[in-house]
Every structure is written in structure tokens, then in C-alpha cells.
């Protein structure tokens, strides 16, 4: 379990590093996706414990051995919302490319002059 939390911290910091330092707008969108993945992994790790079973009621499964379903519902909605917002982000990038002729923010001012 501890290893998963380390991966969560690493992924969040990796995504943040990508968002802050990258010059390419598509890469920045990827940074957001990676940060989001870190948060989702955190939620799912928070819900699970050793020897838990999936939260589906079947015969012979006691309710105390099931993992927590609430973080699962939360991360499920977050995934689909993430797809929607990423799509919007990418459509804005395409629009910006048409205006400026580049997706790199360090070259954006020069091409228009």
C-alpha cells in the first residue's frame, strides 16, 4: 500500500512539473491528465485494504470484507469529467494553433509580427 502512495506523490509532482515547465501546449494537456491519474490512484488506494473484495453483493460475501464504494463512485465521475474537460482543452489548442500558427507558447508572440 505504501508503494502505491509513493507512486501517487510521484505522478502528481510529475504532472505538475510537466504543466509548469513544458512549452508545448499539447504536452501541458498531458500533464493535466497525469496529475488527474495520480489523484484517481489516491482515491482508489484510500478505498482498498488487504484482502478486500469488490463492492458487489454476491452470495457468500460479507459486507465487512468489501472495499469502500464511495471513492469508487467519486473517481468514476472524475474520469468521465476529465475526458470532457480534456477535449475542451484540446479544442482550444487547435483554435489557438490556427490563430498563432504554433502550439509552443515560447514562439507564439513572434509569428504574428
Amino acid at each position: 500500500m505504501q508503494a502505491a502512495y509513493l507512486a501517487v506523490i510521484y505522478l502528481f509532482c510529475l504532472g505538475l512539473y510537466c504543466v509548469v515547465t513544458e512549452k508545448n501546449l499539447i504536452k501541458i494537456a498531458m500533464g493535466f491528465v497525469i496529475m488527474e491519474a495520480g489523484v484517481l490512484l489516491f482515491l482508489v488506494c484510500l478505498a482498498s485494504f488487504p484482502d478486500g473484495v469488490p463492492p458487489i453483493v454476491l452470495e457468500g460475501v460479507t459486507s465487512s470484507s468489501m472495499v469502500d464504494p464511495i471513492p469508487h463512485a467519486l473517481s468514476l465521475t472524475a474520469i468521465v469529467i476529465g475526458a470532457g474537460t480534456t477535449g475542451y482543452m484540446l479544442s482550444l489548442i487547435i483554435r489557438l494553433y490556427r490563430q498563432a500558427g504554433t502550439v509552443r507558447i515560447d514562439r507564439m508572440g513572434r509569428t504574428e509580427q
Binding site: P55, I56, V57, L58, M66, P69, I70, H72, A73, L76, T77
Partner: peptide
């Protein structure tokens, strides 16, 4: 039966 769907 699926508790995640029940919550959602």
C-alpha cells in the same frame, strides 16, 4: 447489487 452504481 453493484454498490458503486447504488451510490452513483
Amino acid at each position: 447489487v453493484n454498490l458503486v452504481t447504488a451510490v452513483l
